[in-house]
């Protein structure tokens, strides 16, 4: 270590003027310091705590006992979860739902962002207005509204479709389709507006030049638009996967806070199984498994992301 450091420095100082280089060396660390402080300060202890708790029995009985000390239980919480056949069904359902939700919201979001460049200004303004309106409504409110729109007797959706009365929720496939629609509806504004902002970075001269070189719309999209958007798309997809994998509110509220077991996603499963019993050890174990599952889903993808970070 000690022998490595000086040799490295001497290697770098060889090229540009030494003082400028040294300052540049410190600058990036100064620049990322504030965000590191926030992230570590807020999240370091909680992250460690979650891992530790996942090996403990920690519930009402322990919290309020005289010693208020947790009991170490090793991997009990994990074996309890992994040994539950329902867990695997729930995991599979969560993955399928996530794929559907992310696919739809990314597809629609990109489509709408591209569309916004093709429409007249009044229409574009209307679109941004509608999207931001939708985005600004808190999830728990918008889900209530959707719950209402799909209400059995007096819901406007059933009325408009002429299928009154219709129960959207007795069949979980149909109910989860509604939930997917609600999630996608809520996710698209962020995606579309961010991508539209990204599109705004493409100089129109570049597009014109490509056109003159004989590129069709698809060619322009592939060779000009996509490269500019690539890192935004990667980031939005990753975050969407993370968020949608943990979907809770939409399903919970659409089902009046009492979904039947064929509606369980990992988030709901954890809540019902662990939080209902104030079993924070088990809850932490589900959180750790959620991260593991997400890593499993995204292992290839994350490597890509790290590469984007290294490349730019």
């Amino acid at each position: 270590m000690t022998s490595l450091a000086p040799s490295r420095r001497s290697a770098t100082t060889a090229e540009p003027p030494a003082p400028a280089r040294r300052r540049a060396d410190r600058t990036p660390y100064v620049l990322i310091a504030p965000s590191l402080v926030v992230l570590l300060g807020v999240l370091a202890y909680p992250l460690v705590k979650v891992v530790i708790l996942s090996t403990q029995k920690w519930g009402v009985a322990q919290i309020f006992s005289a010693s208020s000390a947790p009991t170490f239980v090793g991997l009990d919480n994990y074996t309890k979860l992994l040994g539950d056949s329902a867990f695997w069904t729930v995991l599979l359902r969560t993955v399928v739902l996530t794929v559907a939700m992310v696919g739809l919201s990314m597809g629609l979001g990109l489509g709408i962002a591209l569309l916004m460049r093709q429409v007249p200004a009044w229409c574009r303004r209307g679109m941004t207005f509608a999207l931001v309106m939708a985005w600004s409504v808190p999830t728990f409110i918008s889900t209530e509204v959707f719950h209402w729109i799909t209400e059995y007797n007096s819901g406007v959706a059933n009325w408009a479709l002429g299928i009154q009365p219709h129960n959207w929720y007795t069949d979980a496939t149909q109910g989860l389709a509604v939930a997917t629609a609600v999630v996608v509806w809520g996710a698209v504004p962020l995606i579309a507006i961010t991508l539209y902002a990204g599109l705004m970075q493409i100089p129109s001269e570049l597009v014109e030049a490509a056109r003159m070189d004989g590129a069709g719309p698809w060619g322009v999209f592939r060779h000009i638009t996509l490269p500019v958007l690539r890192s935004l798309l990667a980031m939005l997809t990753t975050l969407s996967v993370i968020w949608d994998f943990q979907v809770f509110n939409q399903i919970w509220i659409l089902r009046n806070g009492a979904p039947s077991s064929d509606y369980y996603t990992l988030g709901i499963y954890a809540y019902v199984k662990a939080y209902a019993g104030h079993d924070y050890g088990l809850a932490s174990a589900t959180a750790v498994l959620t991260v593991v599952a997400l890593l499993g889903v995204m292992v290839v993808y994350l490597r890509q992301i790290a590469k984007i970070g290294e490349l730019s």
Partner: peptide, 23 residues
Amino acid sequence: KNWAQVEKDLTIKQMLADIATGK
């Protein structure tokens, strides 16, 4: 001691909903 958990883990509600719908 665990009754609150039975309420919150939805056992009773799910049972009754399945009976009500004829599932």
